[in-house]
Amino acid sequence: MNWACPLPLRHYPHIVMGHGGGGRLSADLVEHLILPAFGGQSAGALGDSTVVPPIAGRLAISTDSYVVRPLFFPGGSIGELAVNGTINDLAMSGARPLYLTAGFILEEGFPLATLAEVARRMGEAARQAGVRIVAGDTKVVGKGQADGLFINTAGIGELRPGVDIGPCQARPGDVVLVSGTMGDHGMAILCAREDLEFDGQLESDCAALHELTEVMLDAGTIHVLRDPTRGGLAASLNEIARSSQVGIVLDEARVPIGEKVQSACELLGLDPLHVANEGKLVAVLAAESADAVLAAMRRHPLGRHAARIGSVTGQHPGVLAAKTSIGGTRVIPMPLGEQLPRIC
């Protein structure tokens, strides 16, 4: 961590209740730690809200809270997640993300240097994505009342004219694409949290997907976009099947899964289709657009391993089925809750 503590914060290596009290300590925290990281305005410009110029098109709005443990993991941290996660939620309705807000809930005693590193990573992720963090808030709760650091981000994006993407839009005859390998984020977090060691490190796929969705929208008409986060691909496709009242048939052998993720899942008795992703998307679109969109995805760095994995049918509405690798069929259910490793 390369953060050098600026003068007014030097007496406080850890968060104290006063950092959330709205007084000078709060102001110091925002002015000397948060704002420099986000690369923005001077403190003098801070009001109770931020005013932005008019936006021409329809707006997409989303919010999400981030409570990941550990805070830092191979491939990212809660900072990148908080920025990219909300960007991705906006991108999945076909919007170009413009502005984010960030709210921090801090536990008394949380190291300031860690907060600085998280904020730096948030600023860096936002800059890379071309999105501005324009409003924020910090609150402090007593020791033991939170687990270190929680972040909420909300975002606003502008929709492209003519785009109509939503979970109800899948139609029989459509095809299903994914942008890359499944399960990387969830398995990286699990292994980092539980100190599990496998041959070679598992890395989170955490990334902002709005540029990938832009090239996809340029290449063809898309009916549904989802980022398969919690519950993985299985949850996303089940939701699409239910919302659109269609059946979805997955060709299991075609779903890209990294070898390390596959091995770790085998060992722990987990199903990679139920494991979370943070830098992948699933798209449902008309068969005639599929080749062009798939080619466009594969030209983008985040879509190199994109694949056609299934199709939409009028049969068994609301149900996700799979053609298994040896030619059988099965239903893929909506995951119940958290996946738990099996005994044997």
């Binding site: 298994t324 030619g327 099965r330 005994i343």
Partner: peptide, 24 residues
């Protein structure tokens, strides 16, 4: 057997029933 849909690929004369071997 279920995950790979093996039971459906077998001839109809073979009936699979399932044993007591789930320790949980």
């Amino acid at each position: 057997l279920m995950r790979y849909g093996i039971d459906e690929l077998l001839p109809p004369q073979i009936e699979l029933v399932h044993g007591p071997g789930c320790p949980v």
